[in-house]
Amino acid sequence: MTRADKTEWALIIAFPVLIAAALLLPSWMVNYIQVSLGTGLVALGVMIQMRAGLVSFGQGLYFCVGGYAAGMAGKFLGITDFFVLLVLGVVAALVISIALGFLLRRYREIFFAMLSLAVSMILYGLLSSSEGLGSTDGFNLPVPTYLFFAPEGDAARMTLYALTAALTVICAIVLNRVLRSPLGMINEAIRENELRVEYLGSSAHYAVHVTYVIAACVSSIGGVLWALSLGHVDPEMTNWTTSGAFVFVVILAGTGNIIAPLVGTFLLEILRVYAVELSPNTWQMILGTVMLLTIIFLPKGLWSLMGRKPKAQGPSPDGAVQPGE
């Protein structure tokens, strides 16, 4: 069994584990798991772009587009069905990312990062000044229904949680296969040497464009799930601090495995909770310190700890066994 197959089996096994966690853990912990699953999908969108050497500091754009598309459909059109809201969020992100992709696919490194950030902040400014959408306060979403099924109380929370877990697992498996596909291989080649990719007959611009669109759609799914979980959207979803947090997660967790950003998102949520409790006024310093230490001692992220193997011992020239040889 290959490493990729093991990853997919681990994701499949994770689904019943997540359901069991919802039944056994305290409600506050379950809420953090549910929220982190939504934001974890956005981190996955950042990760697959980083595999192509692209750092998106504007991924909050599609996180926000998904949430606001679902929210506006509920607020103005009275749509409450979960699946319809999800489709609307993805379609909105798909249309916007295809259009913006023609511009962004031409840029690399700091230019890609800053341009993606600029586009995200344009949306932030528009939403913050829009009184019809609640300005900086945002607005609430309706309680979702599910194909004319409208659970209440604990049943409603459990239904949304189960669907969030299922969609997260499905998206992670799909992205894992994308990374193993020719597109994924081309992206890694683009990161190493884009000029050689062009010489071999593949279009780097096309590969980057497709990857950008896939990342946008996955991030919009995360935005819809996150918004429905909290029942609220606001412009902070597309602020630079939100987008920066997604990049922070990927750096913290690493890009070695599709599971890493999902675990890293949950760890970041828990770290933020305890950092705020420990130091309410300077909790950002704690997060910054953790990130700095991770970059220094684990440049490939926390997931690199999973891939480390103990060094084999071998005989030295004089016959003695030397550690690390």
Rank of each mutant, 00 (worst) to 15 (best):
T2Y: 13
A4I: 10
D5M: 14
A14G: 11
L18D: 01
I19F: 13
L24E: 01
L24C: 08
P26V: 06
S27K: 14
W28Q: 09
Q34G: 01
Q34R: 12
A43S: 13
G45Q: 05
G45W: 02
M47E: 07
Q49L: 11
R51Q: 09
G53C: 02
Y62K: 02
C64P: 11
G66D: 00
A73L: 01
G74R: 07
G74C: 05
F76W: 15
T80R: 12
D81R: 06
D81K: 11
V84F: 11
L86K: 08
L88Y: 04
V90K: 01
A93T: 00
F102G: 09
F102Y: 15
L103F: 15
Y107W: 12
Y107Q: 03
S116V: 06
L117W: 09
L117S: 04
I122R: 10
L127K: 07
D137L: 15
G138D: 05
F139Q: 04
F139I: 08
F139A: 01
E152P: 15
D154G: 12
A155T: 15
L160T: 00
T164I: 07
A165L: 05
A165V: 05
A166E: 01
L167S: 01
T168L: 06
I170A: 08
I173W: 10
V174Y: 13
R180F: 00
S181D: 09
N187V: 06
N187Y: 02
E188M: 14
R191T: 03
R196K: 14
E198Q: 14
E198K: 15
L200M: 10
G201L: 08
G201V: 07
S202N: 10
S202H: 14
Y206M: 12
A216E: 04
V218G: 03
G223D: 02
S229A: 11
L230V: 07
M237D: 09
M237A: 03
T242F: 08
G244N: 04
L267F: 09
L267D: 00
I270E: 11
V273P: 00
A275F: 06
N281H: 14
Q284F: 12
G288F: 13
G288P: 11
T289F: 14
T289W: 07
L293H: 14
L298V: 08
P299G: 01
L302I: 10
G307V: 07
K309S: 00
K309T: 04
K309N: 00
K311W: 04
D318K: 15
A320G: 13
A320W: 15
